[in-house]
């Protein structure tokens, strides 16, 4: 237990150092599929956040009862329940958005971020740590989704949250809101993040070399 990260570490790790999309490359299906508008991306991130938080807390509460060979069944059952609740809730109160997202909400069940967090964190640590971990990872996921969605919506539709932000002369790059745009944007952003991380790492090792004679 001693070498597992604390609640604060879990929270911070989820946002950037272990960002589910940019660093762990998990949950890419919704990342590519629903990021053609910022509204859809934020709704998706919210739904994933809700499911992740509930699944993590429940898993953590029953972690001492889990049998190793039955744990995946329990995770899946828990996740599926909360995904169904999220799906019904969206259909009831955000009807148009639920139609836009369509099958991607039920598909949260197979989003690896959630089962990964249940396995890595919630099945080993207390509910408090599991909850902060879930919030951190959800924020990281939301950050990744909204960064991709913002770029795609601005370039592809000239708008943000459905409101026009680009000058009227801007020729909307329709390809950016179509599936290829998702791959372009994600690839470039992922490359940027990797470049920053590598440069940071290089600086750190340089400093270490200098300080140790």
């Amino acid at each position: 237990m001693a070498d597992l990260p604390t609640a604060t570490e879990r929270f911070i790790n989820g946002i950037l150092p272990e960002n589910p999309v940019y660093r762990q490359l998990l949950g890419l299906c919704p990342t590519l599929a629903v990021t053609n508008s910022l509204n859809a991306a934020i709704t998706m991130a919210g739904a994933v956040g809700f499911v992740l938080l509930c699944a993590n807390v429940i898993t953590s509460l029953i972690r001492n009862l889990l049998k190793p060979h039955l744990r995946i069944v329990v995770f899946t059952l828990t996740i599926a329940t909360f995904v169904t609740i999220a799906d019904r809730f969206l259909a009831a109160y955000l009807y148009q958005m639920s139609k836009t997202l369509g099958p991607y909400i039920p598909l949260i069940i197979v989003n690896c971020i959630i089962i990964c967090r249940c396995e890595v964190c919630a099945s080993k640590q207390s509910p408090l740590v599991a909850a902060t971990d879930a919030i951190g990872q959800s924020l990281g996921f939301g950050l990744a989704l909204s960064s991709i969605a913002a770029i795609r919506e601005i370039l592809g539709a000239g708008s943000l949250f459905g409101l026009r932000v680009m000058p009227a002369a801007w020729p909307d790059w329709t390809i950016m809101v179509l599936p290829p745009g998702a791959f372009f944007t994600f690839g470039l952003l992922l490359g940027t993040v990797n470049w920053i991380v590598t440069r940071k790492g290089a600086k750190k090792s340089q400093r270490r070399e200098r300080s140790s004679p």
Partner: peptide
């Protein structure tokens, strides 16, 4: 598998509740 079964029943009941509550709205 008792835990799986207990959870399945519990989750099933809560989902039925959600459906009763939100079904008419949908």
């Amino acid at each position: 598998a008792w835990l799986v079964m207990v959870l399945a029943v519990g989750f099933g009941i809560s989902l039925a509740g959600v459906q009763l509550l939100l079904g008419p709205v949908i």
